[in-house]
Design a protein around this nucleic acid. Sequence first.
DNA 1: CCAAAAGTGTTAGGGGTACACCCATGC
DNA 2: GCATGGGTGTACCCCTAACACTTTTGG
Lengths: 235, 235
Amino acid sequence: MSLESERQRLSPFFQFGQSVDCVVFGFDGVSLQILVIERGAEPFFGYEALPGDLVRLDEDIDEAATRILHDLTGLNNVFLDQLKTFGRVDRHPLGRVVTTAFYSLINQTKYNPRPASWAVKARWKSLSELEEMAFDHRELLQTALDALQRQVRQHPIGFELLPEEFTLAQLQTLYEAVLNTQFDKANFRKKILSMEVLKALDKTQQAVRHRPARLYRFDTQRYTSLAKQGFLFEL
Amino acid sequence: MSLESERQRLSPFFQFGQSVDCVVFGFDGVSLQILVIERGAEPFFGYEALPGDLVRLDEDIDEAATRILHDLTGLNNVFLDQLKTFGRVDRHPLGRVVTTAFYSLINQTKYNPRPASWAVKARWKSLSELEEMAFDHRELLQTALDALQRQVRQHPIGFELLPEEFTLAQLQTLYEAVLNTQFDKANFRKKILSMEVLKALDKTQQAVRHRPARLYRFDTQRYTSLAKQGFLFEL
DNA sequence: CCAAAAGTGTTAGGGGTACACCCATGC
DNA sequence: GCATGGGTGTACCCCTAACACTTTTGG
């Protein structure tokens, strides 16, 4: 059987739509938030949804996710990772659309709202504020949350949510918000510092009415070289 | 804009093919193996490939994976988990095909070879025996291996690869093969037994020319109830 | 008795937990 | 000085790694 005859035989299968949806996490210093848009097109016009779009025929799936994130936030080089693909037959009213969910962590201090063509507006919402969502987006979100809680303990990705310079207390608050737990201050500090992936700066907080905290920066190079030697980030 | 006009506007996007590929792991008592087929159709006729097929328009993606596995092995209710979706524009010569990779763990003693329509034949190969593979299947395989090594340490999935009744030595050998390491016998036993997820049977090995080992069985119920209380399987 | 693998006990050290305490700043 | 959070030291406990040892079978 030739390539061309196979193409003919299989052509009825080529009727899928492929989309990409992004779960974008941010942190406002107190609680974990996600970026939602209000849909500006049918179906689910006016509903809250995750930012996403159909993938173009000449576009890699990863590229599509990067494009969506850039259109929405104006940011490049943000943390972006594939999560899972959702392919229930009836998940989209317009036809057979398979969606691949991505999750992204962004530093809220760098965020520039930029409603894209498919969105009326975008805004941050904490998890408790969320209303009904379009499609199966609630399920995608829950999957992303589970993944984040798993990943954040085993990979140094929490830093993506903080400003480049941060205090250990901010870092601890972030972990407590994401994991929904409490850590002992002394032990948290010892653990994170013992990994030697933070660079202590000669700077402190300004204008606080208590002893100012030292600022730190995540040392990407150091982490990369440790990781090559088998070092595992944990908790 | 109505639903119907949206359907019209978006129809040019609905030209994707969606496929599913399965990385099926097995264990022969010595080393980790995967199930490969020899392709019986173009493209890549005659090449080794992962078992997979195009998803039908009226079929969920998960269903397609289950179908493929059943057609190939005759087995139902096997461990099957989604891995990752591969969507490079040029990954398939016949057109734009996005594939979702799954990985599966099966008990080789239950396996019934059953070459499906799309395969000339299926066979077990250890990792070192693998030759060039069709499409980007080598990449899918590597991703599956990484996932397996991560998952097997944090979830009690190794048992899926063993007979229902097994010795602790078999279990240790399995872990050593998957993770490519060595464990101290005494410590391995203490660790696994301390989790209390194995049921000790009043049976031993037969016809071995040394002291016969006790047989164990994974206690699914026990694990489920422990997991609900926050217990985490580890190593 | 010997070989081979099953199965157990002991010890030393590292890492985590709990908790008490001191330090620097603004007001 | 006081309130507020930053930052540190210590004692205990458990888990783990390392390793030596005993047990049970077939031949």
